[in-house]
Every structure is written in C-alpha cells, then in structure tokens.
Design a protein around this nucleic acid. Sequence first.
RNA 1: GUGGGUGUAGCUCAGGCGGUAGAGCGCUUGACUGUGGAUCAAGUGGUCGUGGGUUCAAAUCCCAUCACCCACCCCA
Length: 417
Amino acid sequence: MQIQSPKGTRDILPSDIQTWQWVEKVARSVFETYGYQEIRTPIFESTELFVRGVGDTTDIVEKEMYTFDDKANRSITLRPEGTAPVVRAILQNRLLEGTNVLKLYYNGRMYRYERPQKGRFREHWQVGVEAFGAAGAAVDAEVITLAHHFYTTLGFKDLMLHLNTIGDRACRPNYVAELKAFTKSRLDQFCNECQGRYERNPLRLFDCKRGCREILNEGPRLVDYLCEPCRHHFDSVKRYLELSQIDYTENPDLVRGMDYYSRTTFEFTAGGLGAQNAIGGGGRYDYLVEELGNKPTPGIGFGLGVDRIILALEAQEVAIPTQPPVAVFIAVLGDEAMLVAFQLAQRLRLGGIRTELEHTGRSLKAQMKTANKLDARYVVILGEDEIRDETATVRDMETGDQQSIAFDQLAEKLRTH
RNA sequence: GUGGGUGUAGCUCAGGCGGUAGAGCGCUUGACUGUGGAUCAAGUGGUCGUGGGUUCAAAUCCCAUCACCCACCCCA
C-alpha cells in the first residue's frame, strides 16, 4: 500500500505554489502598510494555553484539538488558532511593556481534528493580525478596513462583510440570562443539539441552521440589552466603515467560536465555496490578555483562511499573476557542448537569469518542445558550430528570431531583454 | 460523531447485460540528418483501491475493509 498523507492534510504542489506565494505576498504587503510586524510562534503549545484562552466549552477545545503528552508527560497541543499563541508570546517576551499600541501579524499552519470537506482541512493555513493596546472603535474599523483592503487587492468580486456586536461584561450577562429564560420556557420546541447549546453556550443557539432560529425571532435581542458604552462603540465602528465606504451587513446571528471575543465581531464570506464560505473573521477580545494572567489590555484581530481564499479565487476565476519557471533554456547537442553549456548556465545564473539546461541528451526538436512547455523566453542552442566559434545561437521563442551572440556577451544580452 | 457519493493508465474519464482492459490529454520517437507552438503516425503506459466470496471465468455480481469527496456539526 502506498503511504498517503494523513486525512485532512495535503501537499501544495509546484503547479499551485505561485498562487500561494502571491496571496502571502499580498498579505504581507497590505499588513505592513498598516504598520503590522510579523511574529512567528511555535506550532505546538501547552494545552492549557488554549483551554484558558479559547475557552473550555468551545467546540475547538472540547473535540477538535490535536493533544498528546510528550515524553515528560507534558500535555501538548498543535495550535488550533493563532491568537492565543500570539498573546502568550507577547506576555512572555514583555512586548507590551513600554509600548502604546502593538500590531503583529502571523502566517502559519493550524490544526483541528474535524471531518474534512470542501474548504475544511485538518491542517490549514491562516494569516492574521492582532492589535493590542487600543480600545477605541477606530482600531476595530481599521482592522476591518485592512481585511477589506487585502481581499480587494487579491481581486475578490463576490465578497460580503457581516458585522455584529456581542456586548461586554457589563451587558452580555443580562442578555444571556434573558435568553436562557426565554429558551427554557419553550425548550421542547428546540432540536436536540440546541438543547445542548442552551446548557453550554446559549449564544450559539443563533448558529442553528434548522428551524430553531425562527423561535428566537420572538425572543430578546442583544441590541436591546447593550450597555451605553457598547452601543456607542458599535455605532462608532459603523460610522468609520461608512467613512471608508465599506459595505457591511449587520448580522445579529454572528457569534464567533472563541470565548474571548467581546463587542465587535465580523466575518467575510465569499461565493464559490459551498458550505464553508467564511474566508476570514475576527473581533475584539478585551479580556483575553487578562485571562492569560496579565494586566487588562484591549485587543482586536482577525484571521483569514488561505486554503479557502485560494479555493474562492479559483471559483471566482480571479487572474493570478504568474511568471514562467525559467527564462532561458540551453539546448545542448553532444557531450562536448554539454561541458560548455554547464559553464554558460552557471554564468547566466550568477547573473540572476533563471536558466535551465538539457540534462537527458535528447534531440534538438525534443529540447525545443521542452523549452516551449516551460514557456522559456529564449533558447540558447549549443552544438559543434557554436562551440567552435564561441558563439551561441539564441532563439527568441516569442518572435522566432534567431541571432548569434558571443559567449562572453550572453549574460548581458539576455539580461537586458 | 452522523448521512450520501466516488475509487479503472501520470491526468480527466468511458466500460458495468460476467468472457483475455479502452479513449482523450501527457510522455517518447518519427514525418522534418541541428529548431517549439499546428497536423499526422507509431510507441509508452493499468496486480481496474485492498481482502475475501460466488463462478469454468469477476473491472463487472455479493460481503467486508480502506481511502477520497460532499453535506450535517462547527469553523478559516
């Protein structure tokens, strides 16, 4: 039996790599434009970080983590998300000390033990940003603007922004209590799963894709329970977005999967992805730093799924800038020519020209075919005549023109093209 | 964890009423003794996912198993 990659993992092949590199390049470039610096954290962490950070009643922690004991019986978990590790890192390295606002971005693989489907993998790539130290609504809007900037730079056509607020410590408990009371009186009308949600995390009732959501239309609305500061914060975020001319839909159902969120939550969805259509999301987490043992520090961030973004770009047929793998192909005829070709190739490469040469000694016709398939702009032909005259025959594959160029001028001539 | 679908050549897929395995693309070679993209021709290529059963005979029927895909759950 052939050994296969583990379920839910996959190889990113050379034929796809330019798309990946492009998405990563755009992310870096946009994030740095907004003043973010990269941070890299370990791919595994102490299990406790996620239990405390993400929340022990969340699905991620309850059933989706890759957790194991190391040889010294420490409980280790492959990171399922990026925010908690970043918070751990800034606390451990005292990055908040002496800093006003700290802006970081990351790019890495995340691990969740879930049943794979379209746009969902056990190993997936996320890029994200985190901003610490600013409590004002302008930062919320800035992060959302950054995300929007990123998606539109990539060329997304079919993009939607969903926006919500989930209140804070002052007002959310009141609302949750009302919601529970409302739900309890008609619990028998809810599906089995929602009855479980009622126990564990009532806000998740809004996630139900069956009929239960209907029942809640009659129930209490979070917007009616927001405290004054939360209401004002939300209004400000919306005003900033309107100033930036970013369209959004208020979506009161948007409750995110981690316990650490407060106030603003948002999510971007894209067409062409099937059921898993969220290509990024985030929110404010003003209590997370405190939860992980430091003095209270406001924070907000968002993460985007690279795998899904690439699927959506393909579905939306967005053109991706690519370059041919080689610029110059050296066609070689005979063993003598090979000795010369090897040296010439090295000279071109030292000159920064992407160069490939024939390694299997086929007919010139076959070599031309290969050069064509590689989309090389030039073919340098080396046979007996060329060796004798120390002059290469250079063919422009676009125009079909051919000329003779002395060996010692080759690098310079080809570079200027 | 639950449901449905699919596994045949490197890739995309036919064949399915049991009777020695097919196409297109790719790759190699040739038509064109040192010149690509087009055309034509020849060649290359498969323990028909795996194991078992029925049968004179199984890619085809039956059972089991594995893998992948899609959906639920949840999320990126």
